[in-house]
Computed example of a mutant assay.
Amino acid sequence: MSELPSTLRGVLIQAAGTQLLLPNAAVAEVLSYSDPEPIAHAPLWLLGRVRWRGWQVPLVDFSRLDGIDAGSQPAAGGRRRVLVVKAPGGHARLPYFAFLADGFPRLMSLSEATLETLAESSDPGRCIFARVAINDESAVVPDMDAVESRLRSELPEAA
């Protein structure tokens, strides 16, 4: 049996009300922001769809999705980015979704010495897997399965 690596690579993303920590392997690409195509009757957290490699990828504002900062406005101008991520469920109609980011993500090396779990989520209605500290910074680890599930419930064509 092989040993787990002593360090993992993660991506730290500034989102309107918090920082998100994602596994580097989950991120497919970082794009410059362009206005998404609106989705009729979508909740505030579902900003629309962005075009990426022939896909119409739903764009999520995580801070609004999980109610971290429901009144926040994303950073203006050229600082906004779109992080296309692989959906964990492997559904043919929703293989990817995207998170809105304020600026470029930071690649980080994570180890037991640098990463501390502050709290695991106990609320099944939330899209937070855990709250963590990375050195002196706090971040939220999204529950990617829960985000995907919420998207599938809002997008009938993705179900």
Rank of each mutant, 00 (worst) to 15 (best):
E3Y: 08
L4H: 10
P5E: 02
P5H: 03
R9I: 03
R9Q: 02
R9Y: 04
L12D: 01
Q14C: 10
A15G: 09
Q19C: 14
L20Y: 06
L20G: 13
L20Q: 00
P23W: 03
A25D: 10
A26E: 05
A28R: 11
V30M: 09
L31P: 11
L31Y: 02
S32C: 11
Y33N: 01
Y33M: 08
D35P: 02
P38Q: 10
I39D: 03
H41L: 14
H41P: 07
A42R: 00
L44A: 15
L44K: 15
L47F: 03
R49Y: 01
R49W: 08
V50T: 05
V50I: 05
L59K: 00
D61S: 07
D61N: 02
F62C: 09
S63E: 01
S63P: 07
R64S: 02
D66T: 11
D66C: 03
G67M: 09
G67F: 06
I68R: 11
I68E: 12
A70V: 06
S72L: 06
S72F: 05
Q73C: 07
A75Y: 01
V84T: 01
V85D: 08
P88W: 00
G90E: 01
R93Q: 14
R93T: 07
L94D: 03
L94A: 05
Y96G: 11
Y96L: 09
F97K: 04
A98G: 05
A98M: 05
G103A: 04
L107M: 06
M108K: 13
S109T: 06
L110H: 04
S111Y: 01
E112M: 04
E112C: 04
E112T: 09
E112N: 13
A113I: 08
T114W: 13
E116A: 13
E116R: 15
E116P: 09
T117P: 06
A119E: 15
S121G: 15
S121R: 00
D123H: 10
D123W: 06
P124G: 04
G125H: 15
C127L: 00
C127H: 13
I128H: 12
I128V: 15
F129N: 06
A130M: 11
R131P: 08
I134Q: 07
D136E: 14
E137L: 15
